[in-house]
C-alpha cells in the first residue's frame, strides 16, 4: 500500500483555528479504520504540537505521511525556536504568557504529553530560526 501524504497550513496566533489540522488527520484515520486507541494517541500528540506551533512558532506547516502500520507527522515552524529542549521537556515548565494560560494551555504539559503518546519524538530547534518536531506513532 502506498502511503498517504497530506500538508496543512497552520495559521500562527489564530487560536480559534488551532486544532483544525489534527482534526482533519483524526477524521482520515477514522475513515481508514485505524483502531481508536491509536487514533487517540495520534490526535493528542499532534494537537499538542499544533497548539505549540500556534502559540510559540507563529504558525507553519504540518506534513503528514500515513503508512499501513504507522503515521509520521512533521510540524515545521519558523518561529523563535527553543533555547533549551531538555528544559522544555520538563513537565510543568512553560514560557507561555498569561493570555495563553487563560485559554486552557501553557501548563507545561505539551511536550511531555507528546512524548507520552508518540512512539518516536524528535525535536530540532534553532533559536531565531525555527523548530521542527517529528512525531511517529505506530499502529498496534
Amino acid at each position: 500500500m502506498e502511503n498517504l501524504h497530506f500538508e496543512y497550513e497552520v495559521a500562527g496566533n489564530n487560536f480559534s483555528q488551532a486544532g483544525m489540522a489534527s482534526d482533519a488527520v483524526k477524521s482520515t484515520l477514522k475513515k481508514m479504520g485505524i483502531a481508536s486507541e491509536d487514533i487517540r494517541r495520534v490526535a493528542i500528540a499532534m494537537y499538542e504540537g499544533e497548539i505549540n506551533m500556534v502559540i510559540h512558532g507563529g504558525g507553519g506547516v504540518a506534513v503528514i505521511d500515513i503508512f499501513f502500520d504507522h503515521i509520521e507527522i512533521k510540524l515545521i515552524d519558523h518561529g523563535k525556536g527553543i533555547e533549551n529542549i531538555e528544559l522544555a521537556m520538563t513537565p510543568g515548565y512553560s514560557t507561555a504568557e498569561d493570555e495563553i494560560r487563560a485559554l486552557g494551555f501553557g501548563a507545561g504539559m505539551g511536550l511531555p504529553n507528546m512524548k507520552k503518546y508518540a512512539d518516536v519524538l524528535e525535536i530540532e530547534s534553532e533559536v531565531g530560526v525555527g523548530t521542527t518536531v517529528y512525531i511517529r506513532v505506530d499502529f498496534h
Binding site: 487560536f15 482534526d23 487517540r40
Partner: peptide, 11 residues
C-alpha cells in the same frame, strides 16, 4: 473557547 470542543473531540 473553541479549544474546549477540539479537546473533547480529540478525546
Amino acid at each position: 473557547n473553541p479549544q474546549v470542543v477540539r479537546t473533547a473531540e480529540m478525546m
